[in-house]
Design a protein around this nucleic acid. Structure first.
Lengths: 186, 186
DNA sequence: GTCTATACGTGGATAGAC
DNA sequence: GTCTATCCACGTATAGAC
């Protein structure tokens, strides 16, 4: 596979951004073409199955980003508490303090979600697993760790929805604060 | 305004259902026509501004439904605890135990959301206000009541998103359980 | 109020030259 | 790998008869 003019990585970053802000349905090929600087034919060269293939690869790309930015730091030898704080700071920055939407949530609500259900679900499951590990490491009882992890994502996603809907980032900031103080408590 | 063949109320119920399951973007006029049994022209007779007017009226309709089913019962003389339990049971049924999506969340993620931002925001604010009142009545400190109310919606919306994404209603059931046990605590 | 027919734009997707 | 040009389906929306 010869190197493309614009590295695929970079294209995926742009697609991630576009799908996040415009939604999967709202991101038209015309818009995507504009954003990436690639003509439609070029896009179909890289993604023969069209938009479905784009979002699928974007989801994998996002998963890799999360792996590097969130999950990998959680496997270091730092104290769980410090790792939690670091993770929350990263999340805070990633969602611009609650001003930015979440690609995952947007994708869940899209018309064609059935066509990329699996990769979408996978990102959530990986994220939950990472949080569960952290809980276990901090001494949270095994039968409670998974629920805790799921509930953390519930709060993050829900807070992003509400913050956008009422145009107030307070719910998001509180959600992170609450996770900071209670996710790892026994 | 002469009575329509099919009462407008009933049409709005059908639209609510369709927008919820298919999303605003995914609900095409063809589909809406099919579901309601009204031809496209009839739809434009009732909703001259098209889909935007439909969703706007559906949101108002939903607000009235919530008023009757959720908010009005909260203003009775029952104990706050009993009223909370009743509300959670209604919510549980409304979202089919976490299997059904939330129109509000779907609408938030739609392409044309800017065109019905206000009515959408209004439903959230009314709901939050109702929860806040209940908190205050139960003796939750005034400076905490609003946050509590917002956080309750965060959990409900977030749980619906996650439950759908990972195809597991457990997060939703837990969210309601947690609200039952902690929303009104001091 | 409802219907049939249709206009018009834009969506995703392709063909074929370079 | 990228471009221009184009296809077709479907989207919303409208016209005009009944």
């Amino acid at each position: 596979m010869p190197a493309a003019i614009r590295p695929l990585e970079e294209v995926l970053d742009l697609l991630l951004e576009t799908f996040t802000s415009d939604g999967y349905d709202g991101a038209s090929l015309a818009r995507i073409s504009e954003v990436t600087g690639l003509g439609k034919s070029s896009l179909y060269h890289h993604f023969p199955r069209g938009k479905v293939e784009m979002i699928t690869k974007v989801l994998r790309h996002l998963e890799q980003q999360l792996e590097q930015a969130l999950f990998a730091p959680m496997r270091t030898k730092e104290s769980p508490k410090k790792k939690l704080d670091a993770m929350l700071a990263t999340i805070d920055a990633f969602y611009a303090g609650g001003k930015k939407a979440c690609l995952l949530e947007r994708a869940c609500a899209s018309v064609d979600r059935a066509q990329f259900r699996r990769p979408l679900q996978h990102v959530f499951l990986v994220w939950i697993a990472a949080l569960e590990s952290l809980c276990l490491e901090a001494g949270v009882p095994p039968d409670a760790a998974k629920s805790r992890a799921q509930d953390a994502l519930v709060r993050i996603e829900g807070a992003l929805v509400l913050a956008a809907a009422i145009n107030d980032t307070a719910p998001f900031r509180r959600a992170l604060d609450q996770l900071r103080s209670s996710l790892l408590s026994k």
